Measured scan of single mutants.
Amino acid sequence: TLFEALYDYEARTEDDLSFHKGEKFQILNSSEGDWWEARSLTTGETGYIPSIYLAPV
C-alpha cells in the first residue's frame, strides 16, 4: 500500500525524512508506533516519518 503526505514536514533529527504535501511513500516498517520507516517515491530517500501526516492512496 502506498501512502501520500497530507502536509509538509521538516525533519527534526537525522533519522527523520523531510517531505512535501502530496509526496508518495512506500512504507518499509510500520511496527515502531506512530513513526514509520518509509521510502519517498519522489526522492528515493528513506527515513522516519510521522504516520499521522499520511493517508493511504
Score class of each variant (00 low, 15 high):
residue 20 H to M: 12
residue 51 S to T: 07
residue 37 E to T: 11
residue 1 T to M: 14
residue 23 E to R: 01
residue 27 I to F: 03
residue 7 Y to F: 12
residue 7 Y to W: 13
residue 13 T to P: 05
residue 25 F to C: 01
residue 34 D to A: 11
residue 41 L to V: 08
residue 42 T to M: 11
residue 8 D to F: 05
residue 47 G to I: 04
residue 35 W to A: 06
residue 22 G to C: 05
residue 13 T to F: 15
residue 36 W to A: 02
residue 45 E to M: 15
residue 1 T to Q: 13
residue 45 E to K: 15
residue 16 D to P: 02
residue 53 Y to C: 08
residue 16 D to G: 15
residue 30 S to W: 14
residue 22 G to S: 04
residue 54 L to H: 01
residue 34 D to K: 09
residue 10 E to A: 11
residue 38 A to S: 04
residue 54 L to S: 01
residue 37 E to P: 04
residue 46 T to Y: 08
residue 28 L to S: 04
residue 44 G to W: 07
residue 6 L to K: 08
residue 20 H to L: 12
residue 11 A to Y: 02
residue 21 K to H: 05
residue 56 P to M: 09
residue 41 L to I: 08
residue 36 W to Y: 06
residue 10 E to H: 12
residue 15 D to W: 15
residue 3 F to N: 01
residue 57 V to G: 04
residue 4 E to D: 02
residue 20 H to T: 14
residue 12 R to G: 08
residue 38 A to L: 03
residue 11 A to E: 03
residue 35 W to Q: 07
residue 6 L to W: 05
residue 13 T to Q: 11
residue 45 E to H: 13
residue 28 L to K: 05
residue 34 D to C: 14
residue 47 G to N: 03
residue 36 W to G: 00
residue 22 G to V: 00
residue 48 Y to G: 03
residue 5 A to Y: 01
residue 27 I to D: 00
residue 19 F to H: 01
residue 10 E to Y: 10
residue 25 F to T: 00
residue 24 K to P: 03
residue 17 L to D: 00
residue 44 G to Y: 06
residue 46 T to F: 07
residue 18 S to V: 03
residue 15 D to H: 15
residue 39 R to M: 12
residue 26 Q to N: 07
residue 5 A to N: 00
residue 12 R to I: 11
residue 17 L to E: 01
residue 24 K to I: 15
residue 29 N to M: 07
residue 26 Q to A: 09
residue 44 G to A: 05
residue 41 L to Q: 07
residue 14 E to F: 10
residue 46 T to K: 10
residue 55 A to Y: 09
residue 49 I to N: 00
residue 26 Q to T: 11
residue 25 F to Q: 00
residue 39 R to D: 01
residue 3 F to V: 05
residue 20 H to Q: 11
residue 8 D to L: 03
residue 13 T to K: 14
residue 57 V to I: 11
residue 21 K to N: 04
residue 26 Q to I: 15
residue 15 D to K: 15
residue 5 A to D: 00
residue 14 E to Y: 10
residue 43 T to G: 03
residue 37 E to Q: 14
residue 23 E to D: 15
residue 42 T to H: 09
residue 44 G to P: 00
residue 42 T to F: 11
residue 38 A to N: 00
residue 30 S to Y: 12
residue 11 A to H: 06
residue 49 I to G: 01
residue 25 F to A: 00
residue 52 I to M: 13
residue 4 E to C: 09
residue 10 E to T: 14
residue 39 R to P: 00
residue 35 W to C: 09
residue 26 Q to F: 14
residue 50 P to V: 04
residue 42 T to E: 14
residue 40 S to F: 03
residue 45 E to D: 09
residue 26 Q to M: 13
residue 47 G to F: 06
residue 28 L to N: 04
residue 9 Y to F: 09
residue 47 G to Q: 04
residue 12 R to T: 13
residue 37 E to W: 15
residue 29 N to P: 04
residue 36 W to K: 02
residue 14 E to N: 12
residue 8 D to R: 05
residue 55 A to L: 08
residue 19 F to P: 00
residue 49 I to K: 00
